[in-house]
């Protein structure tokens, strides 16, 4: 984009189409931004509560672990942990919202009743059960949190990017293109007047020459 384009009709047409294009892009981006913000507010509330919930649950879990360690020693806990039944795994799908890839998650409940954990309940102490329960709860929370928080993070970054684009179009690009188009049309009008006057002068001169000649 040249700052001082030639004042021709071609350039004027080009500048006008550029303005139109920029306006269209601006409108579209604005819509994208609004859609993203709407999506964002939909999941915002969930994520904030979950994060603090997870923090407190992890704290509880670590406390339980420390207590169990003091009672049983690390080795016994490790031994129990080796025979725990495995969680069945998760299913992660990637959803696409306005070009933002957002993971969504399908998971089964991690928290299990006491007897189906897999290690011998008789052979271990209740302290270990407490640890297992606390960490199961924490894992459930992690699953829930993982999709919302991740999605929010991504949405925010995209919103910021889109907002910046919208603003740069609205306040920089479009005004600049408009002034350019205006400049060209002014120059063209000026040239028209110029040539009009020139023609008049020539005509007058010719008439004068004819009259005298």
């Amino acid at each position: 984009m040249a700052e001082n384009p030639n004042p021709t009709r071609m350039e004027l047409l080009k500048a006008k189409t550029r303005v139109k294009l920029a306006r269209k892009g601006h409108k579209l981006l604005k819509q994208k931004r609004d859609a993203l913000i709407m999506e964002f507010f939909k999941i915002l509330g969930k994520a904030q509560d979950l994060r603090s919930e997870l923090n407190s649950q992890m704290k509880k879990a670590y406390t339980a672990l420390a207590v169990a360690q003091a009672y049983q020693g690390m080795q016994e806990i490790e031994a129990a942990s080796l025979s725990v039944k495995r969680v069945p795994g998760v299913k992660v799908d990637v959803r696409n919202i306005m070009g933002v890839k957002i993971p969504s998650l399908e998971s089964s409940q991690v928290e299990k009743p006491l007897l189906s954990r897999g290690y011998s309940v008789v052979g271990t102490s209740a302290k270990i059960d407490e640890v297992a329960e606390a960490f199961e709860k924490a894992t459930d929370l992690v699953f829930k949190l993982s999709q919302t928080e991740n999605a929010i993070r991504r949405l925010i970054l995209e919103i910021e990017k889109t907002k910046r684009r919208v603003n740069s179009l609205e306040f920089v690009m479009i005004p600049r293109l408009e002034t350019q188009a205006k400049m060209i049309s002014f120059r063209l009008e000026e040239m028209e007047r110029d040539s009009f006057v020139m023609l008049k002068t020539i005509k007058r001169k010719l008439e004068k020459a004819e009259a005298s000649g």
Partner: peptide
């Protein structure tokens, strides 16, 4: 599911079935 952490944390998560 994977956990990368210190040994206390990993033990805990293994106890949860990870």
């Amino acid at each position: 599911i994977a956990v990368i952490a210190d040994s206390a944390t990993t033990t805990g998560f293994r106890l949860a079935g990870v």
